[in-house]
Structure formats: structure tokens, C-alpha cells
Amino acid sequence: MTEFLHYLRKSMLRLTPLVIVLALAVNAFAEDFKSSVYNPGSLKPTDSSPLVKVGDIAPDFSLQDITGGKVSLANFRGKQNVVLSFVPAAWTPVCSQQWPGYNIVKELFEANDATLIGISVDNIPTLHAWTHQMGDLWFHVASDFWPHGEVARKYGILRSDGVAERATIIVDKTGVIRYVEVHDINTIPRLENLVKELKKLPK
């Protein structure tokens, strides 16, 4: 009996590392779909005063892109319409879905000769990690991190806590602003509204 217990103990000890490894692997697997998203709760819908309006020339900017290059609004002048999608912050509930939604409708942008620049005040490493789990994105993701929120400030959509509004701005090929929407930060703008505005752009 003692011998048996001794054997059992020995075999259990031998198995323990394996069990630990397996348990950790299973937990890592569970962690994978466990939400990494931080929920800030309900926020004041908007918290800024836009400095741009339809008809204005869009303030130019040149920001670092997650692919390592720079993205400048002026580069699209005469070539493509541009949708600027400002989102408040990486790893927050609504933002974490808004861009993946745009990611599956590239053709709706292309049909209206438009491209998309997603902008947030997060730094590049954060944007890299966050957008990485969205899959391959077809559009530019730009960091308005430093000087902090400078572009958002120029457009008058920087909130008092240092994040941008959830704002959509459409700039036509001549650099003129055709649409400004500062959306309630707590909810997702409807895709059909964006598509409707894209269709209105001069052909």
C-alpha cells in the first residue's frame, strides 16, 4: 500500500509540470477571446466646439502612420476624397468596432473615389497592438499623439480630457470639407449615413 502511494505520488509529481503547462495553455486560449477592451462607462456625448465647417478648406496635417510612414492630407489633393475618422481611444468599446466595420466595406469607399484615414491620439505602439487584432486594415491609421491631439485641436474636436471626439469629416478632392459630424462618443455612427454622404460627393 505504502509502495503504491509512493508510486502514485511519484507519478503525480512527474505529471505536475505537464498539467501546469496544459492548464496555462488552456487559460491563454480563454484569454484570447476574453475582452481586452476597457469600458469607460457612459461619457458626456460631446465635449468640444468644432473649428471647421462644411465649405472650409480642411486644415492640413502630416501624421505618423502605423506602417512606419507619414500620412499627409495634402497628398490626396486632386486624387481622392478623404474620410477622416477620429476616434477617442484605442481599446474602448465603440472604437474597437467602428474601424473593423469600415474594414469590410472598402468597395463602398472606392465606389465613391474615397479613402479613409483613421486617427486617434494614441501613440504608435498602442495603435499597432490595437489594430493588429482587427485583422489587416486597408486604410491608413494615423497617430495624433505628439504634440498631443494637435490635429484634433486644429479641427476643434479635442475633448477636455485629451481624447478626440468620435468625429467623421469628409474632405473632397479639392481639399474642401463636405461633411462634419461630431457623433455622440458613446455610440457608433451608422454606416449607411456615411455611405449616403459619400454618394453626395461631386463626381
Binding site: 505520488r9 503525480m12 498539467v19 501546469i20 487559460n27 480563454a30
Partner: peptide, 24 residues
């Protein structure tokens, strides 16, 4: 005591298998 600890450790490890957070 060692045996008890081992058994407890194994029970704990097995418990980890079946607790993928709130999903359950």
C-alpha cells in the same frame, strides 16, 4: 502533508481547465 499539498495542487490545476472566466 506533502501528499495533501500535491492533491490540492492538482485539483487547483484541474479547476483552471474549467474556468474560462465569465464565459461559463
Amino acid at each position: 502533508r506533502t501528499r495533501l499539498l500535491i492533491v490540492l495542487a492538482i485539483i487547483f490545476q484541474l479547476a483552471m481547465f474549467v474556468s474560462p472566466g465569465e464565459a461559463q
